[in-house]
Design a protein around this nucleic acid. Structure first.
Lengths: 216, 216
DNA sequence: TAAAATACTCAACGATTGTTGAGTTTCAAG
DNA sequence: CTTGAAACTCAACAATCGTTGAGTATTTTA
């Protein structure tokens, strides 16, 4: 019987194939065409063609099941711990992107289902700019590393070597970075001058007696 | 404290839960509500309600990822040295009238150093009464079980079989339970009518795309 | 040099998906 | 007897999904 012999994928195809593999391990389910597209900043059409090519070469099979139906020929091993350590990166002032400053000053333990949401890191919040979103000075935000984000999401944005936490709003050609604090004004930037490091998917706070004293 | 029995799924719920588990193993991805419905010859609506019930009881989590996003809460296996499971024992109203502590519905994974602080449990917050303390509707608060507390600490207080989340302030012979919301008035009670269940030592929040949509 | 494959953009179609409202039935507990 | 939950039906909405056509630029192959 004429079995499909896996052919060598191109660089781009392998890039996406490996990303899909990691996604399945992390999320417990295959990604959609648009999720892949968002990760690589390309359109669904481009992803579709690359997936077609990968299927033709025998690296995966595309769905008989409709949405999200994608099966890898070489399935990823499911390492299944119940928790994972997420690096807490402190200040992101002077470097480039966060990858460069992998000085993990601490580790945050998160439950397994949160890890499934992708590559995570954590940031300690300084200042009150997101106070109306319930993010206080000293909180730790859980961030999923990604270069794009949807409107209304809280993003870690890199602007001229400075990282900020803001709501993201695209408005025509410019981007509004909106603080959640009535005393602060929004920042307007060109999309080219903005680098999104990740999207906030969680907030952790640890209260202690010092915090209590300030309220008494 | 009125520790109640963990909520068992009904026969039908367990039936579907096991089917979903088998589906994931077989297909490599979670099923859609309609696929479940087809397998049991019921409508999407019926499936939806059963999945809701299973999520309420902590057996699975319905996704922030849109289609086919179902993550099972697996039974606890190997003890992890870096984390521990804290029971989420129910909802607490941070708003007006209150609801007593209910059944355990899920588990929260916290790092081990937090567990050393005593016996912990977690509560899901309902309402906006602690909004100015950065505790929002839907947050999960980590609570250390204890019967006393210091001034200024946020406590889980039981008043006539009703639990609330408030700042604790002793004022002479009476106790002031202070909400963190300018629109709400403090509650004054005699110490004898008040039962402190624990002290809030942490806040956890999980953001998803739905939350983002509301801000865009 | 011509042809094919690769890697994309943009705009759009129809199908599938999660979700909701309104109403029914069954069955056990107060 | 009443109440409430669990488990359903039916119809429908909006968002998301896979997919497609038409077109461009670049690289690889024959």
């Amino acid at each position: 019987m004429a079995r499909t012999i896996p052919t060598e994928p191109t660089f781009r195809q392998r890039q996406i194939l490996e990303w899909v593999r990691r996604f399945i391990v992390a999320q417990g389910m295959p990604p959609t065409v648009r999720e892949i597209g968002a990760a690589f900043s390309i359109t669904p059409r481009a992803v579709f063609e690359i997936l077609q090519a990968l299927e033709r070469k025998g690296h995966l099979m595309r769905g008989a099941l409709g949405a999200r139906s994608l099966v890898l020929t070489q399935p990823p091993r499911h390492a299944c711990p119940h928790c994972a350590a997420v690096p807490v990166v402190g200040r992101i002032a002077a470097g480039g992107p966060i990858e460069a400053i992998e000085d993990r000053e601490a580790e945050l333990t998160v439950s397994h289902d949160l890890c499934r949401r992708g590559e995570l890191f954590a940031l300690r919040v300084k200042g009150d700019s997101m106070i109306e979103a319930g993010i206080l000075d000293g909180d730790t935000v859980l961030v999923r590393k990604q270069a794009t984000a949807n409107n209304g999401e809280i993003v870690v944005a890199l602007l001229e070597n400075e990282a900020t936490l803001k709501y993201l709003h695209r408005e025509g050609r410019r981007v509004r970075l909106q603080p959640a604090n009535a005393r602060l004004k929004p920042i307007y930037v060109e999309p080219t001058k903005l680098s999104i490091q990740g999207v906030v998917i969680g907030v952790h706070r640890q209260l202690d007696r010092k915090a209590a004293r300030m309220n008494s």
